[in-house]
Simulated assay, not measured.
Amino acid sequence: MRNVVIHKIVTFIFTEEQLKAYWKNKKTDLPFTSLTNEQYMKLAEEILHHSSHSQ
Rank of each mutant, 00 (worst) to 15 (best):
F32A: 00
Q39L: 11
R2P: 15
S34F: 04
S34V: 04
F12M: 06
W23E: 02
P31F: 00
E45P: 01
F14V: 04
W23D: 03
L19C: 09
P31H: 00
K42R: 07
H7K: 08
N37S: 15
K20H: 01
Y40G: 04
E38F: 06
I47L: 00
T36R: 02
S51L: 08
M41C: 09
K42L: 15
S51H: 11
A44Q: 04
K27C: 11
S54P: 14
Q18W: 01
Q39N: 12
T15Y: 09
W23V: 00
W23G: 01
I13S: 06
S51M: 12
T11Q: 13
S54T: 15
H7V: 01
I9W: 04
Q18G: 02
L19H: 04
E46A: 06
S54E: 15
V5N: 11
H50G: 02
W23M: 10
F12R: 09
Y22V: 10
F32W: 07
H50Q: 02
E16L: 05
S52L: 10
E16V: 07
H7E: 07
H7I: 00
E16A: 05
T15A: 03
K27H: 06
V10I: 03
F12Q: 12
P31W: 00
F14S: 01
K20F: 14
M41K: 14
K8R: 01
L35T: 02
K42G: 15
T28A: 08
R2W: 08
Q18V: 01
H49M: 10
R2L: 12
M1T: 13
V5I: 14
V4P: 08
A44P: 10
T11C: 09
R2H: 08
Y22M: 06
T15M: 07
I13L: 05
L19G: 12
M1D: 13
K8W: 11
T33W: 12
Q18P: 06
S34L: 06
V10K: 04
Y22F: 12
T11G: 01
I9N: 09
T11L: 12
D29L: 11
K8I: 15
T33Q: 14
Y40W: 07
H49G: 05
K26G: 05
I9T: 07
L43S: 03
A21M: 06
A44E: 04
K20S: 03
K26M: 11
N37K: 12
D29T: 10
K20L: 14
S52W: 05
N3L: 14
T36I: 03
N3P: 14
D29R: 03
Q18N: 02
N25W: 00
K42D: 14
K26S: 05
K42A: 13
S52A: 05
Q39K: 09
K20N: 06
T28P: 13
